[in-house]
């Protein structure tokens, strides 16, 4: 799969906001309730990787057997746009 590479402005924007988000727990007091809470930037990683996982897993499922042509059920499509 070919990923779209962000341009320089995009990287700067992501670096500043993402870095600030990861550093937030070191600025404000946060509580640790689960064992993974002590991993620095855990929720940032979870959000980013989770998103990637959802997209790739769903697309793979779709391509393998879930996605069908719009006329797969043998019914008219597009008569009620």
């Amino acid at each position: 799969m070919k990923l779209k590479t962000p341009d320089r402005r995009g990287w700067i924007f992501a670096g500043i906001t993402g870095g600030a988000a990861v550093l937030l727990p070191y600025i404000v007091h946060v509580e640790h309730h689960f064992r993974w809470d002590s991993i620095p930037g855990f929720y940032a990683l979870y959000g980013g990787l989770g998103c990637a996982l959802i997209v790739l897993f769903s697309k793979a499922l779709g391509a393998s057997f879930l996605q069908k042509s719009e006329s797969w059920y043998g019914e008219d499509v597009g008569d009620d746009r």
């Binding site: 959000g47 998103c51 990637a52």
Partner: peptide, 12 residues
């Protein structure tokens, strides 16, 4: 953290 990095992943 979750929302921001989801946004980044979406961008990609």
């Amino acid at each position: 953290q979750i929302l921001l990095f989801t946004l980044f992943a979406f961008y990609l």
